[in-house]
Amino acid sequence: MANTNAEHYLGDLEAATKVIPADQPYVMMNLMKFKPHATYSADYQGPKLGAAPGREAYIQYKNMFVQRAGEMGLDVSIVFLGKAHTQIVAVPEEGESWDVVLLVKFASWAAFKSVLQDEKYNREIQPHRVAALQDFRSFSVTEMSDF
């Protein structure tokens, strides 16, 4: 794979804010490939899942994320979670494959962005996502009413 997104770069949130409507429902579409074993950065001081599979670390992340979003009063729902089998139309980049496809709906882009900027999320929750994922793609999606 040319780019493994090992650091899971979130991109420029301000640039995204300029093109994504802040006040309409927002769906995040993720393609994910898990690490064989969760690996945490040396500076993360919270509870680690040891040699657990990356998938288990991601489940921990997902549960903590949903709980934190609820604590923040956000309306978040998992729309779809499925196993990715194979690409059938496009030829994948060399070695590219995905384990899971996930669609998560938020009340708005602003709600999603508020989680990314939350101190507790960044300190206690996000490290499980980074520990879990070998490769990751995330797409910002909003509904088209004029198609």
Rank of each mutant, 00 (worst) to 15 (best):
L10I: 12
P53R: 06
L102S: 14
A107C: 08
Q134M: 07
A42K: 10
P47W: 02
Y44H: 00
I78M: 10
I88N: 12
A22S: 08
D146M: 01
Y26H: 08
S114T: 06
E14G: 03
N122L: 15
A57C: 11
A51H: 11
H8S: 12
K35S: 04
Y61A: 02
G82L: 10
L31M: 14
V115A: 01
S97R: 14
K35R: 14
I125T: 06
N5Q: 13
W109T: 03
D118W: 02
I59V: 15
P25V: 12
W98A: 11
V89W: 01
W109C: 02
I20N: 00
Y9K: 13
E71S: 07
Q126E: 11
A57W: 05
T39R: 05
V66C: 04
Y58G: 14
A38R: 00
E94V: 12
T142E: 05
F80K: 10
R129E: 13
G11R: 06
Q67P: 00
A2R: 10
A57I: 10
Q117H: 02
P25G: 10
E119G: 07
A15W: 00
S41V: 06
F139Q: 10
Y9V: 11
A42L: 05
S41Q: 10
E71R: 10
Y121G: 00
V79Y: 09
S145I: 09
M28P: 03
M28F: 14
P53T: 08
P21D: 07
V76A: 11
M29S: 06
R129F: 03
N3V: 07
E119P: 06
R55E: 15
E94T: 11
L103W: 09
F139P: 02
S77D: 15
E14M: 03
Y61H: 12
L49N: 04
V101A: 11
